[in-house]
Amino acid sequence: AVSDRLIGRKGVVMEAISPQNSALVKVDGETWRATSGTVLDVGEEVSVKAIEGVKLVVEKLE
């Protein structure tokens, strides 16, 4: 799938994300809905860990 190429890519949080709420991230110039197990604020850099349906699963870039 096209989205599989995004695993391992870096992105930027466009809307705050919490474990209860998905929000938008920008990866390679494209906007995607994403979820995370932690709270992520706007502007934080993230890494794509997986794809669940049409959502990216991201975590904060260390």
Score class of each variant (00 low, 15 high):
20 Q>I: 09
30 E>L: 09
27 V>P: 01
46 V>C: 03
22 S>M: 11
24 L>V: 08
9 R>P: 04
25 V>C: 06
50 A>F: 06
61 L>T: 08
28 D>F: 03
61 L>F: 09
35 T>Q: 07
2 V>K: 10
25 V>M: 00
54 V>D: 15
6 L>W: 05
58 V>D: 00
31 T>W: 12
49 K>T: 13
18 S>L: 08
15 E>Q: 12
18 S>H: 09
56 L>C: 02
36 S>C: 13
50 A>E: 06
13 V>Y: 02
39 V>F: 14
8 G>L: 01
3 S>H: 11
46 V>A: 02
37 G>P: 11
9 R>K: 14
19 P>H: 11
19 P>A: 12
41 D>I: 15
49 K>S: 07
60 K>F: 03
12 V>L: 07
39 V>Y: 14
27 V>I: 13
47 S>A: 10
45 E>C: 15
50 A>G: 11
26 K>S: 11
57 V>H: 06
52 E>D: 13
3 S>N: 09
8 G>H: 04
59 E>F: 04
43 G>V: 00
31 T>L: 15
19 P>Y: 11
42 V>C: 06
31 T>S: 08
3 S>E: 08
24 L>Q: 05
14 M>V: 14
28 D>I: 02
6 L>R: 01
56 L>N: 01
40 L>S: 02
54 V>E: 15
49 K>D: 03
2 V>S: 10
12 V>Q: 06
13 V>L: 08
31 T>R: 05
45 E>S: 09
18 S>R: 08
16 A>N: 08
38 T>L: 07
22 S>I: 12
47 S>N: 09
34 A>Y: 06
4 D>C: 14
46 V>G: 01
33 R>A: 13
61 L>N: 06
14 M>L: 13
31 T>Q: 08
18 S>Y: 10
52 E>W: 11
60 K>H: 06
19 P>K: 10
5 R>A: 10
40 L>D: 02
15 E>A: 12
43 G>N: 05
48 V>S: 00
4 D>W: 08
39 V>D: 10
45 E>V: 13
46 V>R: 00
19 P>M: 10
12 V>S: 03
60 K>W: 03
18 S>Q: 08
22 S>D: 15
60 K>Y: 04
22 S>E: 14
41 D>K: 15
39 V>H: 14
3 S>Q: 09
7 I>V: 09
56 L>G: 01
15 E>P: 04
48 V>I: 10
16 A>W: 15
28 D>L: 06
43 G>Y: 04
34 A>G: 04
36 S>F: 05
55 K>E: 13
33 R>T: 12
55 K>N: 14
12 V>F: 07
6 L>V: 05
31 T>D: 07
54 V>M: 14
53 G>M: 02
16 A>Q: 10
17 I>R: 12
19 P>W: 11
45 E>Y: 13
57 V>D: 02
46 V>T: 01
24 L>A: 05
7 I>F: 03
50 A>I: 03
35 T>N: 06
58 V>T: 00
4 D>A: 09
11 G>C: 08
36 S>I: 04
59 E>Q: 08
62 E>Q: 12
53 G>E: 04
11 G>S: 00
16 A>D: 04
27 V>K: 00
6 L>Y: 05
42 V>Q: 05
51 I>D: 03
35 T>E: 08
60 K>R: 12
39 V>S: 12
